[in-house]
Amino acid sequence: MATKASRSAARLMMAPAVVLLLGWMLVPLIMTLWFSFRRYLPLRGGDLGWAGFDNYVRFVTSSSFWPAVQTTLVIVVGVLVITVCLGVLLAILLDQPMWGQGVVRILVIAPFFVMPTVSALVWKNMFMDPVNGLFAHLWRFFGAEPVSWLSDVATPSIIMIVSWQWLPFATLILLTAIQSLDSEQLEAAEMDGAPVLQRFIYIILPHLSRAITIVVLIQTIFLLAIFAEIFVTTGGAFGTRTLSYLIFQRVLESQNVGLGSAGGVYAIILANIVAIFLMRIVGKNLDN
């Protein structure tokens, strides 16, 4: 695409896609911004006029705002820690030559293909049900009192479900990274007197650092928006109300579109702060 003519032709041909994508993004964004400044209560009189910054003030001063932010962070950080740590270990394990490697790898990736709603329901009904769940049977087998997972330890349970979904993604990316490690480097380190743990710390982990940042970046963006897992398990009860769930409740349960939109704008700002922050780390990491 060197000549002027081919460049302008390319621009012309890309234009429809770009305009469509831009519209797709801009229309909801502008509508959200517009509603966030309106008193809009669909079942209690509809659009009741200009509200100024009332919605923004009400959203952050509500007693459920800070707990929601905290829950969001706990879930995101918890899932990230679990998936990255287990992902590295699983990747190392899957990198070892073994019988049935191909099948095992596909099985490991499988959870990623299960829809979030489905996997959350499976976990809720088959594993975590305090009467008939597998965990309850296991607990009773050892003579312990079954745990009511989704009411007593609701947040950790959700972290567990979401980690199970995202572990394959982390494992897959880390596995490809590990496979690109030059085996002579490990042998050189072995000759240099580095035992297994040291080889992991000084050779394998630095080699994986780039892949780990990518996993963290991509997962954070998706994890900030998890919804289905909470909706079908606890419905936001027992301290599992995240920011995105709070917005959903404001709009649909309280029927207050203006307030929910203001929350949506906060979520956009939060996601962008995280994204900029992560982009800088990744940029730094990718330069080396």
Binding site: E184, Q185, A189, Y202, N288
Partner: peptide, 9 residues
Amino acid sequence: FQSYALYPH
């Protein structure tokens, strides 16, 4: 080593 096997980081 043939590939030198230096530690890149």
